[in-house]
Computed example of a mutant assay.
Amino acid sequence: MKPIIKKGAILSVVLFLLMQLYQPARNVEYGQVSPMHFTKLYKVPAKVQGILQTSCFDCHSNNTKYPWYSYVQPVRIFMDSHINEGKENLNFSEFGTYSKRKQRSKLDRMIKQIKSDEMPLASYTMMHKNAVLTSESKAMLLNWIEETKDSISANN
């Protein structure tokens, strides 16, 4: 091996190892569910809650279940950027802080994204096969979201 390639390889390994020292705070509220959480505000059937938990909450709540590979950089940086972006768009843990109009808008957007298979993201379902929405789970979720959206409209 040429000396320049060997030095480059060593430098790459050292940089990779140094990157592992960076471990930012995790998106986890240990055992806590905020009173503003979606499931505290609306009656969510167990099956629907299971679908949301499996397919949505990791990126769209304040409580992510991290897999083992989240301890490896730069994977963690990539994951954190997705989680932060997901929470900016919709955060189930803070759903009660949204106005009723915004809640209905968020539910409308969920319906559109689920119908068009935009959510959950392919990059997420690739590693989390159980998060893929089957036609049955999709129908159940969409029906429940429609009912919830209608109940918000009726209560205004």
Rank of each mutant, 00 (worst) to 15 (best):
Y66T: 05
T39Y: 01
L17N: 12
M79S: 11
Q49R: 09
T97R: 15
N91I: 04
K102F: 13
C56E: 05
L41H: 07
K100T: 07
Q32L: 10
Y42L: 12
I83C: 11
Y22G: 01
Y98W: 13
E88G: 08
C59R: 06
S12C: 12
R104I: 14
T39V: 08
G96V: 06
V28Q: 15
M36P: 09
Q20D: 01
F16R: 00
S81Q: 04
Y66E: 02
F38H: 04
D80L: 15
R104G: 13
T97I: 14
E94L: 15
V48W: 00
L21W: 02
Q23S: 07
G50P: 02
E94F: 06
A46M: 03
A25L: 14
V48P: 02
K43P: 08
L90I: 13
V33C: 00
Q23L: 08
L17Y: 09
D80N: 15
L41G: 09
I77A: 00
V72M: 11
Q73V: 00
M19N: 06
R76T: 10
K102I: 13
I77S: 00
L21Y: 03
N84P: 02
P24F: 09
K40N: 12
Q73C: 04
D80P: 08
Y69D: 09
Q49D: 09
V33G: 03
K47M: 00
Y98M: 15
Y98H: 15
N84D: 10
C59E: 01
H60F: 03
F95V: 09
T54K: 14
D58K: 05
C56V: 12
N89E: 13
L17G: 11
G86D: 04
E29T: 13
H37C: 06
L17F: 13
S70G: 07
D80A: 10
C56H: 08
L52E: 02
L15N: 05
P74R: 03
S12E: 02
K65A: 14
D58R: 00
P24E: 06
L21A: 08
R104S: 14
L52I: 04
A46E: 10
Q32D: 08
V75N: 03
S34Q: 09
T54N: 11
L18H: 03
V75R: 01
D58F: 01
N63Q: 13
E29S: 14
T39C: 07
Y22D: 02
R76Y: 11
I83E: 09
F95Y: 10
